[in-house]
Computed example of a mutant assay.
Amino acid sequence: MLSLTQVPSPARTARIAVSALFFSAGLCFSSWASRIPAIQQKLQLSEAGLGMVLLSLPMGLMLSLPVSGFVVARYGSRRTVVIACLLYAFLLPFLGVVSFVWQLVMVLFLFGFAGNLLNISMNTQAVNVEDEYGRSIMASFHGVWSVAGFSGAAIGMLMLSFSASPFLHFCIITALVWSIVFVAYKYLQVKDIHSGSNTPVFAKPDSTLLKLGLIAFCCMVCEGTMFDWSGIYFIKEVQAPQSLTTLGYVAFMTTMAGGRFAGDWLSVKLGKKNMIRISGLLIAGGLMLAVALPYIVPATIGFLITGMGVSSVVPLVYSAAGRSGKIASGVALAAVSTIGYLGFLFGPPAIGLIAQALSLRWSFTLIAFLGLGTTLLAGFSRIEK
């Protein structure tokens, strides 16, 4: 294992460059999210109408998954990540200038497609850098993405205070991201690991990748539920006052971001498999605390614990998938992402159906058991200790 002083200087530089790409990706997405209400008002969309329109983004994401794996394996992650990041940022201003619903649907589809191409290629770059380091650093890259989420939300609030239009706001973000890409490009890893001529570009995911995908599925159901339902849980079950309805979401996001920066150090100390096992227990324990004691203080503590549990699972799974060596890294990441994103996309709607039939507390109880599934699946998976 390499110490920090033993890490080659090009690897450290590459880590900064890849981190900059993760920041750019998070900044683009959070900038779009911060202006959704303004775009909804401009197009006079109802909540139901907006929900249907927003489905076009995950549809583009899902359809891009097999394409992304092939493109990264065929052309390399360095070339792909640059084109994808430039395209992702380029599409952003079009979201701010749309005048009709069909235009928003079309651009969101392309935005989701480009976003996932960026996701697979930059995670492949992250796997390359991690291989150079010889130790776990994947979680810190995802932590940078989370920090970018906070930054994008803050910039969005600033733009609103100056009454800047979404188009102007997005143009500024695009210019910033393009500048980052042009600086970072030459420091990226040229060659992907497991990309030799003997590594197949197309192959059926084996049981190892399937189990990793199921771990990601369980975790991303939990993550998606917290994104979409934490505020509603605080309103309906915790019955928090209006000023505290977002407290649970903020608590979850804070520990999820912070946990990603601590996750690499902890995974080295505890081992990746043990880290995922503990994370599943934290997810289950945090959610059950919020279910058993639906009051402001214990529910907030529960969401804080859940955020810690969620924080490192997906980065560790991506790291294990990208380093599997049986198929090209980009293809392995795309395979695991496909299974994982199914949980992220379809989990929250399922929670709504269960909540309508029973209650939101029963829904969160089910999610707690899925969190526990992360622990159980890790025990049967081939993840380096």
Score class of each variant (00 low, 15 high):
residue 255 T to G: 01
residue 270 L to A: 09
residue 280 G to A: 06
residue 266 L to H: 04
residue 270 L to C: 03
residue 272 K to N: 09
residue 264 D to R: 11
residue 275 M to F: 07
residue 251 A to W: 10
residue 251 A to D: 05
residue 243 S to E: 15
residue 280 G to S: 06
residue 245 T to M: 11
residue 272 K to Y: 00
residue 284 A to E: 02
residue 268 V to H: 14
residue 265 W to I: 14
residue 251 A to Q: 07
residue 249 Y to D: 06
residue 274 N to F: 08
residue 254 T to L: 15
residue 267 S to V: 07
residue 281 L to V: 05
residue 268 V to T: 12
residue 268 V to P: 04
residue 283 I to K: 00
residue 253 M to L: 13
residue 279 S to A: 15
residue 280 G to E: 01
residue 275 M to Q: 11
residue 265 W to T: 14
residue 242 Q to P: 05
residue 274 N to E: 10
residue 259 G to N: 03
residue 281 L to T: 02
residue 248 G to L: 00
residue 280 G to Y: 02
residue 245 T to C: 06
residue 246 T to A: 15
residue 246 T to Y: 05
residue 240 A to T: 13
residue 271 G to E: 01
residue 282 L to Q: 01
residue 240 A to H: 02
residue 277 R to N: 13
residue 268 V to S: 13
residue 286 G to M: 13
residue 285 G to L: 09
residue 263 G to R: 04
residue 260 R to G: 12
residue 251 A to M: 02
residue 244 L to A: 09
residue 282 L to D: 04
residue 250 V to D: 01
residue 274 N to Y: 05
residue 272 K to S: 09
residue 252 F to P: 08
residue 286 G to K: 03
residue 252 F to L: 05
residue 265 W to A: 14
residue 239 Q to E: 14
residue 239 Q to S: 14
residue 242 Q to N: 11
residue 266 L to V: 13
residue 269 K to H: 13
residue 281 L to A: 07
residue 268 V to E: 15
residue 261 F to M: 04
residue 261 F to E: 04
residue 238 V to A: 00
residue 284 A to M: 15
residue 277 R to H: 11
residue 273 K to P: 00
residue 251 A to P: 10
residue 249 Y to H: 05
residue 258 G to T: 12
residue 253 M to Y: 11
residue 265 W to V: 15
residue 255 T to N: 01
residue 279 S to F: 04
residue 285 G to W: 08
residue 283 I to Y: 00
residue 246 T to M: 14
residue 249 Y to M: 10
residue 283 I to R: 02
residue 242 Q to G: 14
residue 271 G to D: 07
residue 239 Q to R: 11
residue 277 R to I: 12
